[in-house]
Computed example of a mutant assay.
Amino acid sequence: MEAIKNEIMNEIEKYETVIIHRHVRPDPDAYGSQLGLKGYLQAKFPTKQIYAVGESEPSLDFIGTFDDINDSTYEGALVIVCDTANSPRISDSRFSLGEKLIKIDHHPAIDQYGDINFVNVQASSTSEIITDFIIHFNDLTIIDETVARLLYIGIVGDTGRFLFNNTTPHTLEIASELLKFPFNHNDELNQLAEKEPSLLPFQGYVLQNFQLNDKGFCKVIITSDVLETFDIAPNEASLFVNTIADIKGLKIWLFAVDEGEEIRCRIRSKGIVINDVASDFGGGGHPNASGVSVDSWETFEHLANALNKKL
């Protein structure tokens, strides 16, 4: 791990332009690791051109914003992709236009698309990896509370406020280092949890329409009709994937949202590996938090049956 950190820094030092990508449908860790790395590199190399690109997620706009750059900017540039397991999920397909490509991630290493691939599946988040990277070079003293805030948000997001089983003693040590910076972490936690009042009737629908069996498997099915009834967008509906997480006896749950061209299925579990099933259906992710898109409700039922068999 230490050698690859040095190798990555050697590459960064060679390039005057560094462009940072992450995955589509960004979550707090995608935002935090990408923008945190950008802020760190800007502090360490003030004369370099450092950019972060990709589509925004309105519910996460409070975290930060992204750059709009021309294709020509990629000429002779170093591209770094954060928090993205496989290349089809990289936001902004121009990532391949750079001169060299580096992958930094904590998901299982299924698609090693980079010229250099730094994958640490023991890390809670890519934001934890970026913080370790900064500490490795004794650079905590050159970052400010803005960078620390971004990385902390990423760690909090992927650990579910340190409640998920990917939270390790090292994760908490890293978080404690970031909390030494003067940002208001309570405000950040509150903003991560906040939802528009207009969305809460939909939360009530989820709580009244989940399908739980006696094995501890649960399905939540959100059709286009439901989205229309509650005037809610698919990405907004996905914010409620953990609404049922506190049900007693729950072991695996499948939250499916009809997005028009595909049905996006988010899979969660409590201690049971489910990313192998997601992979069988063309998806992937973490052992206890994965996702997959299917083309029909019939395929969705096959996915549900495969997950149910896990129990």
Rank of each mutant, 00 (worst) to 15 (best):
L250Q: 12
L250V: 09
K251P: 07
K251Y: 14
K251I: 15
I252D: 05
I252H: 12
I252T: 08
W253V: 05
W253T: 06
W253S: 06
L254G: 05
L254Y: 08
F255R: 05
A256C: 11
D258E: 13
E259S: 02
G260R: 14
G260Y: 12
G260C: 12
G260T: 14
E261T: 12
E262H: 12
E262K: 15
E262Y: 11
I263P: 01
I263M: 09
I263E: 03
I263K: 03
R264F: 00
R264A: 06
R264V: 05
C265V: 12
C265Y: 05
R266M: 04
R266F: 03
I267M: 04
I267C: 01
I267L: 12
I267T: 02
I267S: 00
R268Q: 06
S269C: 07
S269V: 04
S269G: 09
K270M: 04
G271I: 06
G271S: 09
G271P: 00
G271Q: 06
I272P: 00
I272A: 02
I274A: 05
I274D: 01
I274M: 06
N275G: 06
N275Y: 01
N275W: 01
D276Q: 10
V277G: 04
S279W: 03
S279R: 14
S279A: 14
S279K: 14
D280H: 14
D280V: 06
D280M: 12
G282N: 11
G282R: 09
G282T: 11
G282K: 09
G282L: 13
G283C: 09
G283P: 06
G283R: 05
G284Q: 09
G285D: 01
G285L: 01
H286T: 00
P287F: 07
P287A: 10
N288D: 01
N288W: 00
S290A: 15
S290G: 13
S290K: 04
S290H: 08
S290F: 02
G291W: 09
G291N: 13
G291D: 11
V292E: 02
V292P: 01
V292D: 01
S293R: 10
V294C: 10
D295S: 15
D295Y: 09
D295M: 11
S296E: 13
S296L: 15
S296F: 11
S296G: 12
W297K: 07
E298C: 04
T299F: 12
T299M: 11
E301D: 14
E301P: 01
E301F: 11
E301M: 13
E301Q: 15
H302V: 03
H302Y: 09
H302I: 08
H302G: 02
L303G: 03
L303V: 15
A304C: 14
A304D: 06
